[in-house]
Amino acid sequence: MTAETYALVGDIGGTNARFALLQEGSVKPLALEVLPCADYANLDEAVVDYLARAGVDSVDEVCFAVASPVTGTQVRMTNNHWRFDIHAVQQQFGWRTFKVINDYTAMALGVLHVTNDKLVHVCGGPGNPARPKLVIGPGTGLGVSGLMPIRNGWVPLITEGGHVDFAPTDETEAAILRILHARFGRVSVERILCGQGLLNLYQAHAELQGLAAPLDTPDKITAAALERQGTLAHQVLCHFCTILGRAAGNAALTLGSLGGVYLCGGILPRFIDFFLGSPFQSGFEDKGRMRPLMEFTPVYLVTDTYTGLLGAAEALGNPEVQ
């Protein structure tokens, strides 16, 4: 591989950093590597290691999607220890172009390149493909973005919509809010709709019902729910899907996303069959007078693991992304 031929893209989350190379004019990721963020002191160490693994000495054009707000030049990752200055890193490596975008901005752009075989229809439709698209999904955090149509393409939205307030709709959820408020103070919807959030929800339900809560990781809760080993775990995972449906529906109403809702992130693909049979759809569509609009809006589950990399690749050549 030669430095003159390839660009570098990355999708850096709270747990893993995904890197790939691009040929000029292509968004297809090559030489994919997934590196645990915990194994590196900071971004620059991971980049050096990746380029060595890929057999490339240097690159000129780079775009990284990061699970963090991007304002100014200082980037502080929300869910891991990495911190870096955009200008300092660009100078360190001598990159001609260096774009840093929010991970869900990249996820939104990546949806434009996800193939149909990587989309699972959840509910709704047919929608209107000329209208905005919503991209939302639980992972290490809750990402929210969107795509606004323009004459010759799409403009991605930069949001922190996962940090809006959790809004309970019944007495049980009001009690859950009180429990979480005692732990965290302000309770955003991300306190529930992410990996750690599933554990928070499980522990809150256990406290309310006076039950033991022996499961101590999101994966254990999911496994117990899928195997029906514990009625509490099954109840909690169903509730998780309901709340996600309501949150996605609220965001869809706000954005007017008749172009479709795209559910991304690393959690949902682990239990697709359960999810499709869950109360997600009822949570999404239960919007009173707006129910017909919600039923008209198509919802898809995105199963492409590298959607964020596709979006970072799109961002490199997209003049709307600075």
Score class of each variant (00 low, 15 high):
Arg178Ile: 04
Leu30Asp: 03
Pro126Tyr: 02
Lys287Glu: 06
Cys194Ile: 09
Ala206Gln: 14
Lys133Asp: 01
Val100Gln: 00
Gln196Trp: 06
Pro149Phe: 06
Ser278Tyr: 12
Gln196Lys: 15
Leu8Pro: 00
Leu198Gly: 09
Ala174Val: 05
Glu33Ile: 03
Gly14Val: 09
Ala313Arg: 09
Ala206Tyr: 12
Glu320Tyr: 15
Gly197Trp: 08
Trp95Asp: 03
Val135Asp: 00
Ala20Lys: 04
Ala175Arg: 13
Pro36Phe: 08
Gly137Tyr: 05
Glu45Lys: 13
Gly230Phe: 05
Tyr104Ala: 14
His121Lys: 15
Phe296Val: 07
Arg178Lys: 15
Ala52Thr: 07
Phe64Pro: 02
Ala17Ser: 15
Glu45Asp: 14
Arg291Phe: 05
Leu134Tyr: 00
Arg53Lys: 15
Leu226Ser: 12
Cys63Tyr: 02
Leu244Glu: 07
Gly137Pro: 02
Leu32Gly: 13
Val70Thr: 01
Val56Trp: 04
Asp44Asn: 10
Asn79Val: 01
Leu316His: 02
Pro129Leu: 03
Val75Cys: 03
Ala252Leu: 02
Val114Lys: 01
Pro156Thr: 08
Thr73Arg: 13
Gly161Ile: 09
Leu43Arg: 02
Gly139Ile: 06
Asp304Gly: 10
Asn102Gly: 11
Glu33Gly: 03
Leu180Pro: 10
Glu61Val: 12
Val261Ile: 14
Ala65Gln: 09
Gly277Arg: 07
Leu22Trp: 06
Ala204Ile: 11
Gly162Gln: 09
Gly197His: 09
Gly210His: 04
His121Tyr: 03
Glu171Asn: 10
Ala54Tyr: 05
Val236Pro: 10
Ile179Phe: 09
Val236Ala: 06
Asp304Leu: 11
Ile136Pro: 00
Ala224Val: 08
Cys264Asp: 07
Leu21Asp: 07
Gly265Phe: 14
Ala108Ser: 11
Met107Trp: 02
Arg289Asn: 11
Thr172Met: 10
Asn102Gln: 04
Ala20Ile: 01
Pro218Phe: 07
Pro149Ser: 14
Gly139Thr: 05
Gly146Lys: 04
Glu207Cys: 12
Leu134Pro: 01
Ser188Ile: 13
Thr169Ser: 14
Ile192Asp: 09
Leu147Ser: 00
Val56Ala: 05
Leu147Arg: 02
Val111Phe: 04
Arg246Asn: 04
Glu285Met: 12
Ala313Lys: 04
Asn152Met: 07
Tyr262Arg: 06
Pro126Cys: 04
Gly14Ala: 14
Val9Gly: 10
Arg183Asn: 13
Gly195Val: 08
Val299Arg: 04
Phe274Met: 06
Val9Ile: 15
Tyr6His: 08
Pro298Ala: 12
Pro29Asn: 11
Ala248Tyr: 10
Glu227Arg: 10
Leu8Ala: 02
Leu316Ile: 11
Asp11Ala: 09
Thr172Gln: 09
Ala46Tyr: 06
Gly317Tyr: 15
Cys238Glu: 14
Ile221Thr: 07
Ala213Pro: 07
Leu244Trp: 09
Thr231Met: 12
Cys63Pro: 00
Leu134Trp: 01
Met290Gly: 03
His181Ala: 15
Ala108Trp: 01
Cys238Gln: 15
Gly245Phe: 15
Leu109Asp: 03
Val9His: 00
Gly127Ala: 03
Leu119Phe: 12
Arg18Cys: 08
Glu190Trp: 12
Tyr40Trp: 11
Thr307Gly: 00
Val56Met: 11
Ala206Leu: 15
Pro218Arg: 07
Val155Ser: 13
Cys194Val: 07
Phe84Met: 11
Arg76Ser: 14
Asp60Lys: 11
Asp117His: 05
Arg191Leu: 04
Thr169Leu: 12
Ala65Ile: 02
Gly185His: 13
